[in-house]
């Protein structure tokens, strides 16, 4: 579904060029649960932003669903973000003083059509927050906020869900809950791409890509996870 070929990314600030990603080659298939790991500042978020159409690459090629999307214009990128992907950020980014329901509806406002209210209710139900639909965003716990963010990422039924350090601001219990939801979504067929620097979080993924200083240093199956999945099946 995704193919990156010799992808490079630099940031240019007033003549100063900072290379961030170098020589990235990566293939991601539909239905994968991929974790991008690496130390802080290694370029994980930047890579995720490019994959999620929030940022553009400097050179190389990005093939998405068999189409070259390396140089799309602003408006097309916005449509891709709206239709193809969903984001979950470390700092929830909910609309302040706005109800859970309205927060989850947000992407549908930009979908150019009448809002299908059932989709909003379904997304909220899938993160088990139906009883909180009418609550305002500031009346929720951190874990609940992140579940709202997941529902918002889901509402347009995207092909890929991106999660950038989704447990970074949560206690470990809520963090485990969030990871369980992401695993469930993956089991239901969504491609999930997780960015994290914590081994503990990454272990939930089926495949781990490690980057360091903007380069991929390893790319392997997460055996622990596969074994766990198998034991789950045996039970």
């Amino acid at each position: 579904m995704i193919e990156l070929i010799n992808l490079e990314k630099d940031y240019t600030n007033e003549e100063l060029v900072t290379p961030v990603l170098r020589n990235i080659n990566l293939k991601i298939a539909k239905g994968e649960f991929l974790a991008i790991m690496g130390p802080s500042g290694s370029g994980k978020s930047t890579l995720m932003h490019i994959l999620g159409f929030l940022d553009i690459l400097s050179s190389g090629k990005y093939i998405f669903q068999d189409k070259d999307v390396s140089s799309l214009d602003d408006d097309t990128l916005a449509i891709y973000r709206n239709q193809k992907v969903g984001f979950v950020f470390q700092s929830f980014n909910l609309l302040p003083k706005t109800s859970v329901w309205e927060n989850v509806r947000l992407p549908l406002l930009y979908s150019g059509g009448l809002v299908d209210e059932k989709k909003v209710d379904q997304a909220i139900a899938s993160v088990e927050l139906t009883h909180r639909s009418k609550y305002l965003s500031n009346q929720l716990s951190g874990g609940e906020k992140q579940r709202v963010a997941i529902a918002r990422a889901l509402v347009n039924n995207p092909d890929i869900i991106f999660a950038d350090e989704p447990t970074g601001n949560l206690d470990s219990r809520s963090g485990t809950q969030i990871m369980a939801i992401l695993q469930k979504l993956n089991a239901e067929g969504h491609t999930v791409i997780l960015v994290t620097h914590e081994t503990n979080t990454a272990k939930h993924a089926k495949r781990i890509v490690r980057i360091k200083d903007g380069e991929i240093v390893s790319d392997e199956k997460n055996d622990e996870q596969i074994i766990a999945a198998k034991t789950e099946l045996v039970k």
């Binding site: 602003d74 973000r81 980014n93 609309l95 947000l106 930009y110 347009n156």
Partner: peptide
């Protein structure tokens, strides 16, 4: 600013 960033991240175009 962050809210505008979020709106753009979920698909708002410039003119939106």
């Amino acid at each position: 600013t962050r809210e505008i960033g979020l709106r753009k991240a979920v698909g708002a175009r410039r003119r939106d």
